[in-house]
C-alpha cells in the first residue's frame, strides 16, 4: 500500500502528464483534470479494490465511472500509471487513430474505460445500472462515480438520484467535484444550484463532505468514511471541494483553463511547479 508521499509524488507526475498531453495537441481540459488529480490517484492507488487485468464485466472488483468525461487527461494519466495501458500511449492523446479520444470511450477498446462519457449527465444512470447488476450477481464490490458540479444542471442526474434512493442502491459512492466553475464562469453565476448537500439529502442520500479535496489525507479519510456508510440501505454521495487548476498557480481558482491548453511558456511554468517524480512519458 503506497504511503502519502508516494501518492503525492504520483499526483505531481500526473499533473505533468495532464499539462504535456493538452499542450501537445493544443486542446483538452486541464483545469478540472488538475483539480481532480489527488482524487484519481487516491481512488486507483488506494481506495478501489480492482483487478490488474481489465475486464469489461468487472465481476469481483470495484468499478469506476467518469461522468464528466472532459477531464479525460487525468483519467488517462492515472489509468496508464496504474497499469491499464502503456504510459507511452499518453503521447497519442487526441491524435488521429488513437485510443485516447478527446472524451473517454469504449469504442477503441481502451482498457479501464467501461462507457463513453462527455455528453454530460449520463453517468449517474450508468453507474447505478452497474450497481444493480452487482447486486443481481451477488457481487459485494462497490461502484464509484465522479460528476462535475456544473454537470448537475442536467436533468437526467436527478432522475438517477431519485431512483437510487427509492431502490436502496447502497453499493454506490458518487462523488461530486465541487470546484464551483463551469465553462461560462462560476457555477453560482451561470445557474446557481443552492445547497448541493441539501438537495442530495432531500433525495435520500447519505452525504459525506471532503472539505479539502486536494489533500490526500483528507480524501483518504473521507472516502473511507463513505465506504463505511455503504450497505446501509442508502446511496452515498461525496461532496469533494476542489480547486480547479490545482497545482499550477496561474490556472487556479478560475474557469479560464476549463478547456484551454497552455502555450510553450505556460507549460514550462506549470512543469516547473511540479517535479518529475516518476519519469515523463
Amino acid at each position: 500500500m503506497p504511503n502519502t508521499q508516494q501518492l503525492q509524488d504520483l499526483t505531481t507526475q500526473v499533473r505533468r502528464d495532464i499539462l504535456r498531453m493538452v499542450h501537445k495537441v493544443n486542446s483538452g481540459h486541464p483545469g478540472g483534470s488538475l483539480g481532480c488529480a489527488e482524487f484519481f490517484v487516491c481512488l486507483y492507488q488506494e481506495i478501489m479494490d480492482r483487478n490488474d487485468n481489465f475486464d469489461m464485466d468487472g465481476i469481483g472488483e470495484d468499478l469506476f465511472f467518469l461522468s464528466n468525461g472532459h477531464i479525460s487527461p487525468v483519467f488517462y494519466s492515472v489509468l496508464a500509471r496504474s497499469g491499464y495501458f502503456p504510459v507511452d500511449e499518453l503521447n497519442t492523446f487526441r491524435l488521429i487513430d488513437s485510443r485516447l479520444q478527446g472524451h473517454p470511450t469504449t469504442h477503441e477498446g481502451l482498457p479501464g474505460v467501461r462507457v463513453a462519457s462527455g455528453s454530460l449527465g449520463q453517468g449517474f444512470s450508468v453507474a447505478l445500472g452497474a450497481a444493480e447488476t452487482k447486486k443481481l450477481n451477488k457481487d459485494n464490490h462497490l461502484v464509484y462515480s465522479l460528476h462535475g458540479d456544473g454537470e448537475l444542471q442536467e436533468g437526467q442526474n436527478w432522475e438517477g438520484i431519485m431512483y437510487a434512493a427509492a431502490n436502496n442502491v447502497d453499493n454506490i459512492i458518487s462523488t461530486i467535484d465541487l470546484n464551483g466553475q463551469q465553462i461560462d464562469g462560476a457555477t453560482d453565476d451561470v445557474l446557481p444550484m443552492g445547497s448541493v448537500r441539501a438537495k442530495f439529502e432531500a433525495f435520500g442520500w447519505t452525504v459525506v463532505d471532503i472539505e479539502y479535496g486536494n489533500d490526500i489525507d483528507a480524501i483518504l479519510k473521507g472516502m473511507a468514511e463513505a465506504k463505511s456508510l455503504t450497505g446501509k440501505g442508502k446511496p452515498v454521495c461525496v461532496l469533494l471541494k476542489t480547486v480547479m487548476g490545482n497545482g499550477v498557480d496561474f490556472m487556479m481558482h478560475t474557469h479560464a483553463w476549463h478547456g484551454k491548453a497552455p502555450n510553450d511558456e505556460q507549460l514550462a511554468i506549470g512543469l516547473s511547479q511540479n517535479a518529475e517524480t516518476l519519469g515523463d512519458y
Binding site: D57, I59, Q122, F124, S125, D139, Q156, G160
Partner: peptide, 15 residues
Amino acid sequence: ANMIGLAAGMTIGGK
C-alpha cells in the same frame, strides 16, 4: 433517460 442509462450500466456484469 435514466432508464436508458441504467440499462447501459446493467450490461456491465453480463445482464
